[in-house]
Nucleic acid binder design. Structure first.
Lengths: 332, 332
DNA sequence: ACAAAAAATGGAACCGGTTCCACTAAATGA
DNA sequence: TCATTTAGTGGAACCGGTTCCATTTTTTGT
């Protein structure tokens, strides 16, 4: 059924090595070139990639480990990675861990045994076990979304972005603010965004800011905000992700509050749905697809043993919509 | 660096064939088993999958072609496929075509040349060129979401689901209805859902139903509904997808209409965001993840040359939320 | 205790490519 | 024109597994 290089050789009346040379740009006379070209067209021959990889001892697979597939961040990062890898003639291999951190480790080893050329890890947290795995597999690794001094990484500028959204709500006159964050195990989202925000707050005066923690899930966030509103009525709720903001929005609306009149809400991420809901959500847009492209470029460079900065930063942008109101200070 | 089966053989003091037999469950004495086991543990040896596939002339890759990665339907189908394939010891290879239909064809050939064992196609439309490609590559193919008499397929029960949502809004008393559909090139969404809906309408009396067409994008839908509302004020808008419904919702809200008091809206899909928005969207839930699992089972059966029904149906369920009001007929 | 059957093992070929090396034919230079 | 490059080509080994076959070792039955 499927032709091999030997078949092509026989049909063209030359040797295997000549066909191989033709395929890989070695020196072949015009006449033989034409003969080989013809037989390849006729038979629809394509080289067996396993035989190629076996000999070459390298592959053009880049494994990407994602905690989940059904998130805006993951899918858009993947889109960017995929697009760029195609351009660089690499093939993306996606592995979903379903948010189970043990499966992240398993997957690293399993990708290694599949001989991927490099691994991109859309990370949530980096543990000692991760570092061990990185060490053992001895394959280029790129972290996306988290960073660690021992590993190459590409991160969103969470610190600055957190600072920016803090500045933004302060400028809008808010002084009584609730910050809805996540676990500090997640350094990027849980620590750095909050740290940036706090830095902005520290530069203002007379602020009453309370910090709350919730999960990444919007229903959990809705629940958390409902509870919170019992004891604390901020003029603004700053959320560490868009999903949390969506939950907060629903909690406030169900409580009969009008957004942004009664309470302002901001998100973090820039998911499409933040634009379509009513009111539109003011949020910090992160450029996941672009980050994915950069990640792909970096991992390929690492595979090719070119130099890559230990840490690459991806940009952000504040998108102003309707969910934040301007507060007129009392003393005016 | 990376050990081969020959290394293990040497370390254990046996031949390659014995090690291979140990690995694949041939007859090996207890004593040699232990020796080999030990050397494998020591070296951390894993067989080279390329050498294996080369000899075996088959792989454990299942290629899945998706039109886009950033859709609820695609990602949840993929989650199901991935989960089930892992269980069956197959590896998922995802290919994103970015909604370009030519790239679908290219991808079929490219997956074939990568020697995948089977292909799952999350299809939007099946053209003659598709059928040609299926024919040529000579690999088991499974269509998901669309069907064609020549190919195995797994579809959502769009016809019945369309009928069900039609019945549902009729029971709620609606008689002046707008149906927001998509191109008929998409047989499942564009034709079958509408057909089912029409069948329900045909069974009722005194209906004024108008049919509109839009794209899959929520912004396009928003635009379309805004225009529509100029000339037609239905009591209910039935949308062929949740995204369209989201667009309709926003269009109506921006027009100052209250949902569901002034106009009811239904969706199709059961995306998570339909639950979190306000008002919650009444919609037909499709079980993408479960469908994905079934798809994985079916393609593996096809790969193993077991028999599979030409057409498998996935289920649906109407989720009642707040976006549909009950109309009290005038003559009461 | 010995023949026959069963289990265990090693050697060699093979999967489908790539690459090194040797050799021939053509091109170049003096 | 003859020696010397250079381009073009085929043969054989190799990548790391699996499998067939022949041979040796062990087990079984009598």
């Amino acid at each position: 059924m499927n032709k091999t290089i030997a078949d092509i050789a026989k049909i063209s009346g030359v040797s295997k090595s000549t066909v191989s040379r033709y395929l890989n740009g070695g020196s072949v006379s015009e006449a033989t070139k034409r003969k080989i070209e013809l037989s390849i067209k006729e038979t629809g021959y394509t080289p067996n990639p396993f035989a190629q990889s076996l000999k070459a001892k390298k592959t053009y697979f880049i494994g990407t480990i994602v905690p989940r597939l059904d998130s805006y961040a993951a899918s858009h990062s993947l889109i960017g990675i995929d697009e760029q890898l195609k351009e660089l003639n690499f093939q993306l291999l996606i592995s979903n861990t379903n948010q189970q951190i043990e499966r992240e480790i398993e997957t690293i080893y399993s990708l290694a045994s599949q001989k991927v050329a490099g691994i991109i890890l859309l990370a949530t947290q980096i543990t000692q076990v991760h570092l061990e795995a990185f060490e053992k597999v001895n394959i280029p690794i790129l972290l996306v979304g988290q960073e660690h001094p021992d590993v190459h990484s590409l991160i969103h500028n969470d610190l600055e972005a957190g600072y920016a959204i803090g500045k933004y709500v302060l400028e809008k006159g808010h002084r009584k603010i609730a910050y809805l964050g996540v676990t500090e195990k997640d350094v990027a989202v849980g620590v750095r965004r909050k740290k940036g925000f706090k830095r902005a707050i520290a530069e203002a005066e007379g602020c009453e800011v309370r910090y709350f923690e919730t999960g990444f899930n919007m229903f959990a966030a809705q629940q958390r905000v409902t509870e919170m509103l019992e004891g604390f009525q901020p003029t603004c709720i700053v959320c560490a992700t868009d999903n949390i903001a969506l939950g907060a929005l629903r909690a406030a609306q169900l409580k009969g509050l009008s957004i942004p009149k009664d309470v302002s809400i901001t998100g973090f991420g820039g998911y499409d749905v933040t634009e379509i809901i009513h009111p539109g959500l003011t949020t910090v847009k992160l450029f996941f697809k672009e980050a994915g492209k950069m990640a792909a470029q970096n991992i390929v460079k690492l595979v090719n043993e070119e130099s890559v900065p230990k840490r690459t930063l991806s940009k952000y942008e504040i998108i102003e919509r309707e969910s934040v109101d301007t507060i007129i200070p009392n003393d005016l």
